[in-house]
Simulated scan of single mutants.
Amino acid sequence: MTHTLPPGTRDPDARPLRPVDADRFRRALAVHAAGVVVITAQSEGTPVGLTATSFSSVSLNPPLVSFYVDRSSTTWPRLRAADHFAVNVLTADQAELARRFARKGIDRFAAPTRWRPGPLGAPLLLDVSAHLICLPYESIDVGDHILVVGLVTEAEVHEPGHPLIYQRGRFGRFLPQT
């Protein structure tokens, strides 16, 4: 796969092709709604976690999922050191929980966060739609982020409510059409 355009490459209007500027790119991506998860792990006896809106399924066979994390994340080094992690799929009424796991400089697992240890020790947040327990499968540096792929070893679906959605810098609810 090519990462840069060959010199002199042009679009149909004969303009040189080059990457869009960061502000325009950010504004365009903001209109895309994304589901919200919290990735959690136990690292050196301490629970760690972060909010991700870049979560996606990758493969059914083997069962793989992915998320991206900013290279500057202070949580990523501790997540990376864990031998497994959990994906907690948030419900529409858990926006404050998503905000909490996106904040820096706080104990994200202190009250009012409600959680329990999972079967392998990763913290599982309570009242979520689903938990996926994953083994690290691959991580790849991509631009200013790291693509993290996990092999799903356990999946628990709870009472699935409406999902928490993130769009244009805000959390919201999905309302199905009838």
Score class of each variant (00 low, 15 high):
Asp21Gln: 00
Phe109Glu: 12
Leu60Glu: 13
Ala122Val: 03
Ser43Asp: 06
Ala130Gln: 11
Pro77Phe: 14
Ala52Glu: 05
Asp127Ile: 01
Ser57Thr: 05
Leu5Ser: 02
Arg114Met: 07
Arg27Asn: 00
Ser43Gln: 02
Ser72Glu: 09
Val20Met: 06
Arg170Gln: 15
Arg168Met: 11
Leu124Trp: 11
His145Glu: 03
Ser56Phe: 01
Thr75His: 04
Val31Gln: 13
Gly105Cys: 10
Ala34Lys: 03
Thr113His: 06
Ala41Met: 06
Arg173Ser: 15
Gln42Glu: 12
Ala33Met: 14
Ser129Ala: 15
Arg71Met: 10
Asp144Arg: 02
Ala92Met: 07
Glu154Met: 09
Trp115Val: 02
Glu44Asn: 14
His162Arg: 12
Ser57Met: 07
His3Ser: 11
Arg18Gln: 05
Phe67Thr: 03
Gln167Tyr: 06
Ile165Met: 09
Ala33Pro: 14
Ala86Trp: 00
Phe109Arg: 04
Val89Phe: 04
Ile140Asn: 07
Tyr166Lys: 08
Ile133Leu: 11
Leu164Lys: 08
Gly45Pro: 06
Ala34His: 04
Ala86Lys: 00
Gly161Thr: 02
Asp93Gly: 13
Thr2Asn: 13
Ala81Cys: 15
Leu125Pro: 00
Ile146Ala: 02
Gly118Asp: 01
Arg103Cys: 15
Phe85Gly: 09
Gly8Leu: 08
Pro176Ser: 11
His145Pro: 03
Leu164Val: 11
Val36Gly: 01
Glu159Phe: 02
Met1Ala: 15
Val128Cys: 10
Trp115Leu: 05
Ser43Arg: 04
Thr40Arg: 03
Leu64Met: 07
Thr75Asn: 08
Asp144Cys: 05
Leu120Arg: 10
Ile146Arg: 03
Thr40Asn: 07
Asn61His: 06
Thr4Gly: 02
Ile39Phe: 02
Tyr166Phe: 15
Thr153Leu: 08
Met1Pro: 15
Phe25His: 01
Glu159Met: 03
Pro62Gly: 14
Ala111Ser: 11
Arg15His: 06
Phe171Ser: 11
Leu97Cys: 12
Phe25Tyr: 07
Leu79Gln: 04
Pro163Asn: 07
Gln167Lys: 10
Ala111Glu: 15
Gln42Asp: 10
Arg80Gly: 08
Arg116Ser: 10
Ile146Gln: 01
Gly150Ile: 00
Val37Tyr: 03
Gln167Ala: 13
Arg18Trp: 00
Glu159Ser: 13
His145Asp: 01
Arg173Thr: 14
Ala14Asn: 07
Leu120Tyr: 02
Ala122Leu: 03
Gly121Asn: 07
Ala28Cys: 11
Leu164Thr: 10
Ser72Gln: 11
Ala82Met: 07
Ile106Asn: 12
Phe67Gly: 03
His3Arg: 12
